[in-house]
Write a protein that binds this DNA or RNA. Structure first.
Lengths: 188, 188
DNA sequence: GTCTATACGGAGATAGAC
DNA sequence: GTCTATCTCCGTATAGAC
């Protein structure tokens, strides 16, 4: 019998998600995670065999989350231009978080690529999903010739402004850049 | 008498620069640095009191390096558009390094901002210098009204493509994005 | 399932001989 | 100036009582 299931694992992943976003993979230690969850260190190893397994669970959660968000946009409109603008609106709404801790995927990719290992590829796959989605919208906009390049430009801009806004700790920069990107998308 | 001065300190900074670029601040340990330099761990503390002091020296070096590079561009031309294109040419030339290890400044900013501390601000100052320089060129191009936004867009694009190319370990992506940015600059 | 105790390695940093 | 030895703390992970 599964029972009400206090499902601690999911709660732990949620806490780890925030912790890793705030401090990065290396700095987000097992000790800190256990402390924030209010459980002893050793207990975590009942749910996760290794630290990498935790980050793996986080990435899986993020992937589902983004898929869900894109699903919501697509439920509202079918127009590719509107979909890309929805993406920009989302970027603008998350500016506070971006300025405070950077992009939860991008900063993780940057860190994990230096550290190496198999998790790095899983993180990269998340960005790849975004890229593919954007590419599809540009194609549907009639830009099948340069859809790859346009998607690259957009994802690049999103990741770039996340780095800059985080570096200068200034959410307003996201607003400014979003407005420029909006104008660009509208003019295509 | 200063003497021929084997000036080990500068050599150590150069080695640390590469190590930190390759592995990041936290992963670039004193032990690895000492090993790559071929000296014992404890010896490093004769030249640098703390690890932060090493990164501080690296940042100082990078700042001088970028100033020097911009100086070279300005020695070749006075035209602001050409100067911005020089910047893009440099971006394109460094694509191998960017794909392999990311932007040496941007990735450091991302990491140090999470770790906090006074060095984070010194790293941010480096990006600020680039931003100011770009802004100046856009102003001289006759775009004084939106020079700040345009500079933000350019620096953002540079940082963004560095993240993406590094994530996918693909220098070609830098070429593609550079070409788009070139077209953008030419059309201004 | 939950917790305590601890193994074991590696981090930054210091003391002091040479 | 250079090197060895070592201190102290913290990292992941495990063993095993309850």
């Amino acid at each position: 019998m599964p029972r009400p299931k206090t499902n601690n694992r999911e709660e732990l992943v949620a806490i780890a998600e925030r912790l890793v976003h705030r401090e990065g993979y290396r700095a987000a230690t097992i000790a800190k995670l256990a402390q924030e969850a209010g459980i002893p260190r050793g207990n975590l190893y009942y749910y996760f065999k290794t630290k990498e397994e935790i980050v793996s669970a986080i990435l899986q959660g993020r992937s589902a989350e983004f898929q869900s968000v894109r699903g919501e946009w697509e439920a509202e409109t079918d127009d590719p231009r509107e979909l890309l603008l929805s993406c920009l609106a989302w970027l603008d709404r998350t500016r506070g978080s971006l300025a405070e801790n950077g992009c939860p995927i991008g900063s993780l990719c940057t860190e994990l690529n230096k550290h190496g290992g198999p998790v790095a590829k899983r993180a990269a796959a998340l960005l790849s999903e975004s890229l593919t989605w954007m590419e599809k919208q540009f194609r549907r906009l009639g830009r099948s010739r340069d859809s790859t390049a346009l998607a690259l430009h957009l994802l690049s801009a999103v990741q770039g402004i996340a780095v800059i806004a985080n570096t200068f700790d200034d959410p307003h920069l996201v607003e400014v850049e979003t407005e420029q990107l909006r104008t660009w998308i509208r003019g295509l």
